[in-house]
Amino acid sequence: MAKIVINREKCKGCLLCISFCPKGLIGLDKDLNRRGIKPVKFSRQANLNKGGTPPKAEKETSDCIGCSMCAIICPDCCIEVYK
């Protein structure tokens, strides 16, 4: 089982990690960070961004395979991957 840890205060909300997560395990946080931006969140809810469509079925974050795609694409080095 793998997991990621997101630094929500450094996140600028570019959402690239959401686009590249092959399992759809990253969603938007509902709370703002100190920048006033909605950061991403390692969440069960495979959310979102495609035109505000409602989330499909809830997904377990235990699906994470630790592929690091989100961390590699993150321009702000906000994501750490554990495996």
Partner: peptide, 8 residues
């Protein structure tokens, strides 16, 4: 768990 990706 081992950290496999971190800030350089």
């Amino acid at each position: 768990m081992e950290k496999t990706f971190k800030k350089p």
